[in-house]
């Protein structure tokens, strides 16, 4: 075993080290979706992960929660009640399941069980992990539904919910066990502005008042700048920049010609949603040319 204590700062709950995730492409060649990604997530902070569609954000989340086995690299967790950080890659299925109880996960789709009511979906993790009285589980379900403004949908089936309602029910379920770490994949996509702001507020309450460590993938820049303590920008499988929210705000608010380099201009373009810039310049033109001219 490697001595992980030296590699993981004391205030980090998660430390990702040289993470590589490769998939076999259609031609059989390996595509490195994540290509040497390293960063830390500190206790109680909200880290927002950004990057273009298909850049590997969901893949990264899936590695972090142990759904995908990384090709290479390490993911260390320092969890309450464990004296040593643990390496997710070195864990067996049983250890992973123990660890997963400490996470709450809000998937991109909400991921509810379709055969159960909203209330049953939220109660399920509580029933699975404890011998708490059903009357108390019922109360906890009410508390969780209240937090996401879903009390009136308690007895509905997922099929009877709108996209945003499903997402909120998913969040209620993700928080059922009061996790130490919450992962969110696009929490506010498809929500109206008021509901989206309410979800942001809940995320901030959980993080600031209960010190829940949060990792959030989002494309909604208003939301990102509201909730983030720090931000990561991924590009072509690598960390282009990681820093405090204020640094990203300043990149956003500086005009491109005054920025130092292409990386900064790329981040600026992304944050502002400009159609013109380094992101779109590089994008597939040569590929397109090849296809059109040579037909290959």
């Amino acid at each position: 075993m490697t001595n992980v204590a030296v590699d993981v700062p004391n205030n980090a709950v998660i430390a990702v080290r040289d993470l590589v995730m490769s998939f076999a492409g259609p031609d059989g060649r390996l595509v490195h979706v994540l290509d040497g990604v390293s960063f830390e997530v500190y206790a109680g902070e909200t880290l927002v992960i950004m990057g273009g569609s298909g850049c590997g954000k969901s893949t990264l989340l899936n590695c972090l929660i142990g759904e995908l086995r990384p090709t290479d690299g390490h993911i260390y967790y320092r969890i309450k009640g464990m004296n040593q950080p643990v390496d997710l890659r070195a864990m067996n299925e049983k250890g992973l399941n123990e660890l997963r109880k400490r996470f709450g996960i809000l998937f991109q789709s909400g991921a509810l069980f379709n055969s159960m009511t909203v209330a049953e979906n939220i109660a399920l993790p509580l029933q699975e992990h404890s011998y708490v009285d059903s009357s108390i589980i019922d109360i906890v379900v009410t508390l969780k539904l209240q937090q996401v403004h879903m009390l009136e949908h308690r007895d509905k089936m997922p099929a009877q919910l709108s996209g945003g309602q499903k997402k909120r029910a998913g969040l209620a379920r993700a928080t059922a066990l009061d996790p130490e770490i919450l992962y969110y994949d696009e929490p506010s996509a498809g929500l109206d502005p008021v509901t989206s702001a309410a979800i942001d507020q809940l995320m901030m309450d959980l993080s600031k008042k209960l010190q829940v460590t949060s990792v959030v993938v989002t494309h909604e820049m208003d939301s990102a700048f509201r909730i983030a303590d720090r931000m990561v920008m991924l590009d072509r499988g690598k960390v282009l920049k990681i820093g405090r929210r204020e640094e990203f705000e300043s990149l956003r608010d500086t005009s491109p010609e005054r920025l130092a380099n292409d990386d900064e201009r790329l981040i600026h373009q992304f944050l502002c949603g400009d159609p013109e810039g380094p992101l779109t310049k590089a994008d597939g033109t040569s590929e397109y040319e090849k296809l059109i001219i040579a037909g290959e």
């Binding site: 509580l126 404890s130 708490v132 009285d133 009357s135 108390i136 589980i137 109360i139 906890v140 508390l143 969780k144 059922a176 066990l177 009061d178």
Partner: peptide
């Protein structure tokens, strides 16, 4: 205290 503790107090 977690939510089940709070739930217990409510009950």
């Amino acid at each position: 205290m977690d939510s089940s503790g709070i739930g217990t107090l409510v009950e």
